[in-house]
């Protein structure tokens, strides 16, 4: 883990106010899918606290890395507005990632909503994966071209402007019913809370393992502020407490451990 300034290599503006920010290395080449970093601009940062971003892509040997985000508030807008050669402070890698499936277990199917697509690019670079990707409309469906050719995408939009007309859970159910997605395959999910909660409930009902990558308010991202609590079933892994720290116990959780 380290905190350092990285030069901006490029910023790719995408539709729906989303963007991919490429920074010059060095980065760890060992970053796991689902791990994240705390980012802020090197100068003129308009807010106090850094903002958490999943690592999107890391080039071979860590010579560059990218972060996929959406300009929503002053912090994420400032990061979208950086120019080539500016510096961005990155503190990471933080938290734990999505685990590799156990021997004999089916390949996980990834379900992403909006910028929740971010943790899955690194995953699909390691394994041929089916990704179900949902958004409000076609403008929200971005960055698929960054994924390797071995990835199978299924897209859902709420307004039907691209792909399946409906939400990503309905898409998942229809693909399972059609036999296009293995009904026993564990589900790895990242997106808005209501979507993850609905997907987790569906998986629980059918006895399918589900892991979710959560995003909460965070001040520090490395375990000292105790502010990013999420409600869990008390377990020794969480020090026997009813809250886990999203940043160090997560951000990837077994959905069965969470109290939504």
């Amino acid at each position: 883990m380290q905190t350092r300034l990285h030069k901006v290599l490029r910023v790719e503006g995408l539709t729906g106010a989303s963007y991919v920010l490429w920074l010059e290395g060095p980065f760890s080449a060992e970053i796991a899918p689902g791990q994240f970093a705390m980012l802020r601009t090197g100068s003129d940062w308009p807010v106090l606290l850094p903002r958490p971003f999943s690592y999107f892509d890391v080039s071979a040997a860590g010579t560059a890395a990218s972060f996929f985000g959406k300009a929503i508030g002053p912090g994420t807008r400032a990061l979208a507005a950086v120019r080539v050669g500016d510096e961005v402070s990155v503190s990471g890698p933080l938290g734990g990632g999505f685990p590799a499936p156990a021997d004999g277990e089916p390949e996980p199917v990834c379900i992403a909503g909006g910028v929740g697509l971010a943790p899955f690019l690194l995953w699909t670079k390691q394994r041929a994966t089916t990704v179900l990707y949902g958004g409000a409309n076609r403008e929200a469906i971005v960055a698929m071209e960054s994924f390797p050719g071995q990835t199978t995408f299924h897209v859902a939009t709420d307004d039907g402007s691209l792909g399946f007309h409906g939400n990503v859970l309905e898409l998942y159910r229809s693909l399972v019913a059609a036999g296009e997605v293995d009904q026993r395959a564990p589900v790895y999910c990242c997106g808005p809370d209501p979507m993850m909660e609905a997907v987790a409930a569906d998986c629980a009902e059918r006895g399918v393992a589900c892991r979710v990558s959560l995003e909460t308010y965070m001040a520090c991202g490395y375990g000292v502020c105790n502010g990013c609590s999420v409600a869990v079933e008390p377990a020794e892994r969480f020090g026997g407490k009813p809250w886990a720290r999203c940043c160090i116990h997560g951000p990837v959780f077994d959905a069965a451990e969470l109290k939504w």
């Binding site: 807010v47 106090l48 308010y217 609590s229 809250w243």
Partner: peptide, 23 residues
């Protein structure tokens, strides 16, 4: 002490609010 329920943090102008509750 379990501490307080989330949300426990809120960013403000040049500062932040916390309500951890001595977890």
């Amino acid at each position: 002490r379990a501490g307080n329920p989330p949300p426990r943090l809120w960013e403000t102008s040049a500062g932040m609010l916390n309500s951890i509750g001595l977890e």
